[in-house]
Nucleic acid binder design. Sequence first.
DNA 1: TCTGGGGTCCTAGGACCC
DNA 2: TCTGGGGTCCTAGGACCC
Length: 426
Amino acid sequence: MSNRVFALVDCNNFYASCERVFNPGLAGKPLVVLSNNDGCVVARSAEARALGIKMAQPWFQCRHLVKPHGLIALSSNYALYADMSRRVMAILSGFSPEQEVYSIDESFLVFDDKAASQRLETGSGIRNKVLKWTGFPVSVGFGPSKTLAKLANHWAKTQPEFSGVCDTAALPACRRRALLEATPASEVWGVGRRLTEQLQALGIHSVADLQAADPAWLGRRFSVVLERTAEELRGVSCLQLEDVAPPKKQIMTSRSFGTLVASLPDLREALTAYATRAGEKLRAEGQLAGEVHVFIRTNPFSPDAPQYSGALRLRLPEPTDDTLQLVKAARYLLKQLYRPGFLYQKVGILLSELQPATLRQGQLFGPADSDRRTRLMGVMDRLNRELGRDTLFLAGAGIDRSWRMRQGNRSPRYTTDWAEIPLARA
DNA sequence: TCTGGGGTCCTAGGACCC
DNA sequence: TCTGGGGTCCTAGGACCC
């Protein structure tokens, strides 16, 4: 148990890399991937980054770069990214018995303390194998805590001297010192915009400054979260590997509309579609929901338009994973929330008070009825999984869906939809 | 004209109990 | 004159992550 080493493996520009794997013509070009609704930038190729485009920047602010610089923008294609992610994570799992899939493009691995040379060798091995098998470039950072592994990964990615693999323990002391002083505290995992401002006011600017501050004092001044971060920067591991994903506590489905929506029937259609999706997620998790929350709001970025936002929740008589019951509850709440005379930008549903489906209580209306309902949901999920989303859906979710989000330039679902599989021509 | 979606954790403060 | 205090639960809001 002593002296374990964390590695953080991270796919470089993951979404952009996914697009390039299937469309090599995009290589070397400035490329961004846009969020749902084509709203803002969620991924940038190195070339796009060099144009000064920032993460999460609204698309309308970068659009002027298309003509002069050949900037290419694609709508996000989450079905493709999720599938590619599974492949990369499966390869990584072969390198260590202990893996935490931290996000769609990042994984922590744990190794028993090996010699520094061995770690660098392992890191290169990971890079080569993932590149060869999937076409994705990855970076690898090693450290005695998760926070230091993250930091090492940042250096692996940004400092060419490391060739994509950096081990904090293997750095010469003077080089390490220089990097800590040159890296702003805001790069540290867990230090966001607000904390950065407050730390700066206290004279803490670099990672070296944060590392030098007394963790207990930071804990009193801010919170235990920052205290742990400071300890981790000093090499004291406080955050454990979470290799079994804890069950979700909430499930949310929400989207901004492609065009603003005023009428209750349109809102109801959208909410029905989101509640259906939330039900799918819930059943995939093997959980039941005890509470349904619904929220709606107008566009907060139009300060001149009349603003309204509201949220309500309902405790279900009995926890359920039945889409029809979730939809019914959601529609009831929406009816209470709705105010005419506003242009709505977003509606959403949140399921909470989740519990394992194995704890399902005896049904009030007899087992026959509820069994039928469970089977119906099973059939719906299977058809939609195997034949593509929305093969079977509730008519209440609408057919023409004028509220649907914008996706002006989505690439095909190369790997998850039979109709969009790539064609090889001889 | 145009600004994501889906989560988690922590804290402060109020209500309530004995 | 003097007007408890500690524990627990809940909620809202803030901050962070990718």
